[in-house]
């Protein structure tokens, strides 16, 4: 924005505002494209994800990574803060995730590798990232997962909706040399796993009342949806009915995974 002599290229503040506005729009498009890339097709399930930033761009993150062994890796995360600073660290997190997933065996090792890669940067920038990482194995119909300080996803079964069994692990950027334990759960046809960030349950109406987990559970438990996209729409519908046009205070992100018995020939597509 300045030449070598330190003289501004902008003739007045409105030029500066216009350039800044345009750059933010471009950043928003970049982030949106990275987050909303093609959904993966894989054996034994369907998945969808969406992120709605509170500001023009946000710090929430989700991603899918089809592994060469036929498994699908899913990640969801939340960078401390909001807006442009959080978005920059979200891109850093995405790079670390994709790079780790190239060579890393499981979700626990992925989080360990990511923490090793970005812990120093996050500490220097006084920030942190919470992440939940899971591998779906269509052969054994097992979801293996590890957690770095993120809220636990919800498992939606016919008769109940429960949180996935707890697995320990602290945020990325909190402490160096962290190990992340893994947990496994067997899933059956038509069961859903609902991954989310706290912006969903902390959504507020005009009086400051929060949507809360109990309202989310009510929507999930109704089972008046047939697939992941329909459930995603139902959740947002319910949140917007509750907030009644109050300004969104935090980024809202959800990833919904459903187990099916369908086979996909596209399984080995590289990301």
């Amino acid at each position: 924005m300045f030449d070598r002599a330190g003289v501004s290229f902008f003739s007045d503040s409105s030029d500066k505002y216009n350039v800044l506005h345009k750059e933010i729009e471009i950043a928003r498009n970049i982030q949106s494209m990275l987050l909303n890339a093609r959904l993966p097709e894989f054996d034994g399930g369907e998945v969808t994800g969406i992120s709605i930033p509170a500001r023009l761009i946000g710090g929430d993150y989700f991603d899918f990574y089809p592994l060469p062994n036929g498994k699908l890796r899913i990640v969801i995360g939340d960078v401390m803060g909001k807006g442009i600073p959080a978005a920059m660290l979200m891109i850093l997190t995405r790079g670390a995730f994709r790079s780790a997933s190239e060579s890393i065996k499981g979700p626990g090792e992925t989080l360990r590798s990511m923490n090793n890669a970005i812990e120093n940067d996050l500490r220097a920038l006084r920030s942190f990232v919470t992440l939940f990482c899971a591998d779906w194995d269509p052969k054994s119909r097992t979801l293996s997962y590890a957690n770095a300080g993120h809220n636990l996803p919800l498992l939606i079964r016919k008769k109940e909706t429960v949180t996935l069994p707890k697995v320990p692990g602290i945020m990325l950027g909190g402490l160096p040399n962290q190990e992340y334990k893994e947990c496994q759960i067997k899933l059956n046809d038509d069961e859903y796993v609902f991954f989310y960030t706290d912006g969903i349950i902390d959504a507020q109406d005009m009086d400051g009342n929060q949507f809360k987990l109990r309202r989310l559970l009510q929507v999930l438990q109704k089972h008046d949806y047939r697939n992941v996209k329909e459930l995603e729409n139902k959740v947002f519908e319910s949140i917007y009915q509750f907030t009644k046009g109050a300004p969104q205070r935090d980024d809202m992100t959800m990833v919904i995974f459903k187990v099916t018995n369908e086979k996909n020939s596209d399984l080995t597509d590289s990301p």
Partner: peptide
């Protein structure tokens, strides 16, 4: 619950 989830108590202890 939030502090526990993110690992704040573990950081404090460390």
């Amino acid at each position: 619950e939030v502090f526990e989830t993110v690992g704040l108590f573990e950081i404090m202890k460390a």
